[in-house]
Design a protein around this nucleic acid. Structure first.
Lengths: 122, 122
DNA sequence: ATGTAATGTAACCTTTCGGTTACGCAATAA
DNA sequence: TTATTGCGTAACCGAAAGGTTACATTACAT
């Protein structure tokens, strides 16, 4: 299982859980009651959310209160902002880029200008 | 296949693709060269990205230029902001909530206070 | 002491995901 | 005309996702 924040918020149920918990801490059963999937399913979602740092558990007797810890969401908004930053620059110079692409293919690394670069990333 | 933006950016490869395209439009093969997965794999990723509106294709001869359309990412940042808004309110009143939870369980809908509500949502 | 409520988890199932190879086809180059 | 390039897609595959039921455990109520 991948356990990054992007993965965590990809699931609509988990997003709703986070939304609920952002409002106020709740114990697991209470969370589960608001969904029409089984309690174990919710338990798994919450486990995943804790594993990637978006939720912490505060045990209280036999109950376990789940609290949202939304700091990690900045990873998401930061990425979005980064993208947008580049994008705006691109929009400013869009026409130029298109001209360059058409007149100077070597400058933008086309499929002709280099060979498959295995292992270059990741 | 789910085709929402959250799902789209859950995959690290797709995030990188978006990042590249935010910088400048590229044809499919050029994108594929920057990854160590096969060209059809990238083709699928791009297809998904177009299907959820994050990328548009501009055909040019036999090439297909992929452009980022990052407007849809606002869906993501909006959601994050919404969460944070609630969360901040919660932080302000955290102590109060905890007290309420402990003294007045009926007010927060505990597992005792109602039965499984099937079909209540979704 | 006994029952029940709150929870974790194992075992299982089906669907989706992300990847591959193999092929087909249109546009371009030779 | 023929070869090559850029691309889509079908068929397939293993792993992961998301769900279920069944069972175990612990805290609390009686």
């Amino acid at each position: 299982m991948r356990r990054d924040v992007f993965q965590a918020i990809a699931d609509p149920t988990r997003r709703e859980i986070l939304h609920m918990l952002a409002h106020k801490p709740l114990n697991l059963n209470t969370v589960a009651e608001n969904f029409d999937v089984s309690r174990p399913a919710i338990s798994k979602h919450i486990k995943l959310l804790t594993e990637c740092g978006l939720v912490t558990i505060r045990p209280q007797g036999r109950e376990r209160y789940c609290e949202a810890r939304l700091e990690k969401l900045s990873e998401v908004s930061n990425w979005v902002e980064q993208c947008r930053k580049f994008w705006n620059q691109k929009l400013d110079a869009l026409e130029d880029y298109l001209k360059i692409l058409q007149r100077e293919p070597k400058q933008v690394s086309t499929s002709k200008s280099r060979k498959k670069s295995h292992g270059k990333r990741k």
